[in-house]
Design a protein around this nucleic acid. Structure first.
Ligand SMILES: [Mn+2]
Ligand SMILES: [Mn+2]
Ligand SMILES: [Zn+2]
Ligand SMILES: [Zn+2]
Lengths: 147, 147
DNA sequence: CTCATTAATGAGAATGGTTCGCAAATGCAT
DNA sequence: ATGCATTTGCGAACCATTCTCATTAATGAG
């Protein structure tokens, strides 16, 4: 019962929706996820707490949370959507193409330029999607080597 | 039989693949597309030329062209992939959220910053995906109004 | 040009992620 | 506690894309 999960739950109530056991558990699992899990993975974590909750319910609930803006869905690869609890501060992602790891970053410069580019094209920027793909640089001075 | 289609076809031959009627037609349709059509749309255009060509073949052929780097597949919305012939100069896209129109743009500044950000995170940038979503600005001085 | 080889095609089935439909279960205002 | 509307679990349906496989057709040798 993390605080972030409470936010999800209170938004549920405010939207006239019922607070159910599945929703509490899913909210909790999503709120404490820091690794951009996909829905089946959330389902696995939820099942550890209550094996009776169905995959359908996880999909439905994540969708509801996403529609209230409390959860974000990213489509990094072509496959399944990756989920993360919405954070105060916006960020974009870099994918390590070797490990698949998701690294978060934030570039005010890029954000500013995006808005600028859109304006020059005659548009008001309403959203954007930026994903970088990269290969880890070989560091010259590794300090994990053995002496 | 556009010149761009010829490039696609010659690459086919070079890769030891056969030049077939379907491939010629699909290459031609893709090469002259300037609107980022999805595969079913390409299929429709192909069918106008030869109604016997199957959707499977269009999917297969587009995939082959994409693997040789001559065609690019974008996933703008969550739905189906949008196709475009690869161009010499890289560009990114802005989606008009009102009309769905795809506008191309290029920002050397953003490109540069992306590589910089990746490097700072310890990665060599190998690819990226940038899509802007915007609403058309209301122009103060419309010259399309009636006098 | 003809033939044999082998890749490509068309039709439809299969796939994988996600959503739907519905009967049964449950939350919540009274 | 009671009744009713919302949710749930289950399986079927969906949609874009890929796969299977028997048939067709491109290619290169002769
Ligand atoms: Mn993130
Ligand atoms: Mn384009
Ligand atoms: Zn951003
Ligand atoms: Zn770019």
């Amino acid at each position: 019962m993390s605080d972030a999960a409470d936010v999800l739950i209170s938004h549920c109530r405010q939207a006239g929706q019922r607070i159910t056991a599945p929703r509490r558990i899913i909210a909790d699992v999503v709120a404490r996820a820091d690794d951009h899990p996909d829905v089946p993975e959330i389902y696995r974590r939820v099942a550890e707490i209550d094996p009776g909750i169905s995959l359908s319910t996880v999909y439905r609930t994540v969708k509801i949370f996403a529609s209230t803006g409390l959860v974000e869905r990213h489509s990094f690869a072509g496959g399944r959507a990756r989920i993360e609890p919405a954070s105060e501060i916006h960020h974009d992602h870099l994918i390590d193409i070797e490990s698949g790891a998701v690294i978060e970053f934030r570039s005010d410069e890029i954000e500013r330029l995006q808005a600028l580019v859109a304006r020059e094209l005659g548009f008001e920027l309403t959203a954007h999607r930026l994903v970088l793909y990269g290969r880890p640089l070989a560091r010259k001075a590794r300090r994990t080597r053995k002496p």
